[in-house]
Simulated assay, not measured.
Amino acid sequence: MAAIPTPPDEPQDSPDAYVGLASDEAERLASERGWSTVRSLAPGTVITMEYRVGRLNFEVKDGRVSRAWKG
């Protein structure tokens, strides 16, 4: 029988810490802190709702992160 895969750990980092930062600075910082995928989205962008371990999403308005969430 095959082993059950263990998902990688997510960084112990609060998405709220990125709100208000310039988008390029937030992306750089998130990568440094260990997020495997960082996704910047315009407000109202249609996205799928699947959860991806290690992904951090940013909603960017006027060049700044207005919202951030995991998955």
Rank of each mutant, 00 (worst) to 15 (best):
Y18W: 03
E59W: 07
G54N: 09
P11V: 04
V19T: 12
W69G: 03
L29W: 00
P15D: 13
L56M: 09
V65T: 08
L41N: 13
F58P: 01
S40E: 08
D24L: 13
L56H: 03
A3P: 00
T45L: 05
T48A: 15
R52A: 09
A42L: 15
G44A: 10
R55W: 02
D62F: 01
P7V: 04
R28W: 01
P5I: 01
G71V: 12
Y18V: 01
T45Q: 14
E59T: 13
A26T: 03
R52I: 11
V60Y: 11
N57R: 10
D9C: 09
T6W: 02
F58V: 02
L21F: 15
P7K: 03
A17P: 03
D16W: 08
G20H: 07
G44Q: 13
E50F: 08
W69F: 13
V38N: 04
E50C: 07
M1L: 11
R39N: 11
V46C: 09
S14L: 11
T37P: 00
P7F: 02
R55A: 03
D62P: 00
L21Q: 15
G71D: 10
A42M: 12
I47S: 03
V53A: 07
D24F: 14
S31F: 04
S40L: 14
A22R: 06
G44L: 11
L41D: 08
S66F: 07
Y51A: 04
E10C: 04
K70Q: 12
A30E: 05
A68G: 14
I47N: 04
E50H: 10
P8H: 08
T6H: 04
S23M: 09
A26V: 02
G63Y: 03
A2I: 08
R52M: 07
K70F: 04
A3C: 02
Y51W: 06
R33C: 06
W69K: 12
T48P: 05
I47L: 07
D13K: 01
M49L: 09
S14P: 05
P7T: 05
E10D: 09
A3R: 01
V60T: 11
S23P: 05
V19H: 12
T6K: 08
R52D: 07
T45G: 05
R28G: 00
S14V: 05
T48Q: 14
R55H: 09
I4G: 06
Q12V: 12
E32W: 02
E32K: 06
G71K: 10
D9Q: 15
S14N: 12
